[in-house]
């Protein structure tokens, strides 16, 4: 569905030193510097897949999404989305895709969202019957109800995001590019948006490429992740496999019935935190059985949980390394 090979984007920016004199000079003579946003990225995404697109700020995620959506022209390399070359911006291509930008909005600010829906219906040439069906489904799934009749500026951020999603899906796009769709939302609204995105993918078989700084989004939605850093691809594969490779340890939390000695806990695993009645340890995956057995035998354990280290930690470790993961 999506095929990207050696995609590259350089920006020309003009550079000047701070200060008034430098500013005055730059009016007459400008020095341009080429900044590499995306430096030769290749990947393929099959129809119906949900893929998380991760990377630190300025890694080139948004630039890549915008190239895939046809907003930016690649400097080099090729992108294909369902057989189309995005940069040509053919109507047939634009009718299949949508880019949702969590930080920007397309709804008419002073009018109810229903006006934007109708406007998009006309632009995308959606037959009335299909439009009515889509809208009634979206209204149920997103619990829009009376929201669509209130002027957009009177809606809360979360309500607005729901309506943004609905406006973006009027034409039932087959490919969705989502750039931070949950940014700034509270936890429960994030969960609602996430669940909806997943439902949309399952209901219509749409292909999803999503960026987010909230790892919960990625963990809940994307079995596969593509990680880029400084414009280079550093990982492409299963999310679980990434965790296992970056942090070959499991995180084990023990609760004790009485205070224990730190010295007694140390042999079991690497201590992450310790406060007499509770210990959090990192234990290598292959040594897990042995470690748990030993703890149960030697310590007054009342409760224990085993989990993967939080995705946030894994990501920051990956970004800090700044190199490709085999």
């Amino acid at each position: 569905m999506i095929k990207v090979s050696e995609l590259r984007k350089e920006y020309k920016v003009h550079e000047r030193s701070p200060g008034l004199l430098a500013a005055a000079k730059s009016v007459f003579h400008r020095e341009y510097k080429s900044v590499l946003a995306v430096g030769g990225v290749s990947f393929e995404i099959a129809a119906g897949e949900r893929v998380g697109f991760l990377g630190p700020n300025g890694a080139g995620k948004t630039t890549t999404l915008k190239m895939l959506a046809g907003l930016l022209h690649p400097t080099r390399g090729e992108a294909r989305v369902d057989g189309h070359e995005p940069r040509r911006r053919e109507d047939a291509f634009l009718k299949k895709i949508m880019l949702i930008l969590g930080q920007k909005q397309q709804l008419f600010w002073d009018l109810p969202p229903s006006e934007t829906f109708e406007y998009n219906r006309a632009i995308y040439d959606v037959p009335r019957k299909q439009y009515d069906e889509t809208m009634s489904e979206l209204t149920t799934l997103l619990d829009l109800g009376e929201l669509v009749k209130k002027p957009t500026r009177q809606l809360s951020l979360g309500e607005r995001m729901k309506c943004e999603l609905a406006a973006a899906l009027v034409h039932r796009p087959k490919v969705l590019f989502l750039d931070e769709p949950t940014i700034g939302l509270d936890v429960s609204m994030q969960a609602i948006i996430r669940a909806f995105i997943k439902q949309y993918n399952e209901r219509w078989g749409a292909t999803l490429l999503l960026t987010s700084h909230y790892m919960d989004d990625v963990a809940a939605l994307c079995p596969r992740v593509i990680v880029i850093d400084k414009g280079k691809l550093t990982y492409d594969g299963k999310l679980d496999a990434l965790s296992a490779r970056i942090r070959p340890a499991k995180r084990v939390v023990f609760r004790f019935s009485r205070a224990v000695d730190r010295a007694d806990v140390e042999p079991i695993g690497k201590i992450v935190s310790f406060d007499l009645a509770q210990a959090v340890l990192d234990v290598p995956r292959d040594a897990l059985n042995e470690a748990v057995e030993r703890a149960l035998r030697t310590l007054p354990v009342t409760d224990l949980t085993v989990e993967n280290p939080p995705l946030e930690e894994i990501m920051s470790e990956l970004f800090a390394r700044g190199e490709a993961v085999p």
Binding site: D91, L94, L99, L101, K104, Q106, I123, Y124
Partner: peptide
């Protein structure tokens, strides 16, 4: 200036 022209360019019109 704000970059919301993105939405205009995404439309098939």
């Amino acid at each position: 200036r704000k970059g919301t022209l993105d939405f205009v360019l995404l439309k098939p019109a």
